[in-house]
């Protein structure tokens, strides 16, 4: 009994928002999380061999959000296992690598996974990471990413965990949208509030309607 009360209070007082990072192995999911949560970067590749989370508090003007960000192993052989973690996610950040066409082509597979395993209302965001690279090494253009996001009707950012470009913005945008969605779900009388898109380069015009 005490426990239940505890949780209710927790969830109402500080919004706890569960986010999930998915995408092919090596696209930089863990680096994005490291940059966002600890503002640091490591160039060495340590493959994630499971699923881990970090807590990040995000004080907004009118409410305090506590993000619990789950970082998943991207390796193909773990794919079926990781789908088990989709269910609790309120937001999913789908990451590809702008220097890796394959990771971009796989976005549609990941979207399918989301459709099958995540809750219907989950907020999605597409992230093209490593946008700091030499243009010669780029394989996926900003326009391609933006267009794909538009097709899915989701927000899009190009980011660089290395150079700290748009990382805060990407997480902030999805977290804030979730907070708004939850508020709207609680307050059913509130008719579809228009959501302002935060600052950030290369965001898609398309906006998920809920």
């Amino acid at each position: 009994m005490a426990n239940r009360g505890k949780q209710a209070a927790q969830s109402k007082y500080d919004h706890l928002i569960k986010l999930l990072l998915i995408g092919d192995s090596g696209v930089g999911k863990s680096c994005l999380l490291l940059r966002y949560s600890e503002d640091s970067f490591t160039p060495s590749f340590i493959t994630t061999i499971g699923i881990d989370f970090k807590i990040k508090s995000l004080p907004l003007e009118d409410k305090k959000l506590k993000l619990q960000i789950w970082d998943t192993a991207g390796q193909e052989r773990f794919r079926t296992i990781t789908t088990a973690y989709y269910r609790g996610a309120m937001g999913i950040l789908l990451v590809y690598d702008v220097t890796d066409e394959r990771s971009f082509a796989n976005v549609k597979n990941w979207m399918r996974q989301i459709e099958q395993h995540a809750s219907e209302s989950v907020n999605k965001i597409l992230i093209g990471n490593k946008c700091d690279v030499d243009p010669a090494d780029r394989r996926v253009s900003l326009e391609q990413g933006r267009k794909l996001a538009e097709e899915y009707g989701i927000i899009f950012f190009e980011t660089s965990a290395k150079e700290n470009v748009n990382v805060d913005e990407a997480f902030y945008t999805v977290a804030r949208d979730i907070a708004l969605r939850i508020d709207n779900e609680v307050d059913l009388t509130a008719s579809g509030k228009n959501v302002k898109i935060g600052p950030g380069v290369g965001r898609a015009g398309g906006k998920e309607c809920c």
Binding site: I49, G50, I51, D52, I81
Partner: peptide, 16 residues
Amino acid sequence: DILILRLENGQDFFLS
């Protein structure tokens, strides 16, 4: 086989 080693309130390790 893949095993899931769970740390309560922490990471899940996938062991092949």
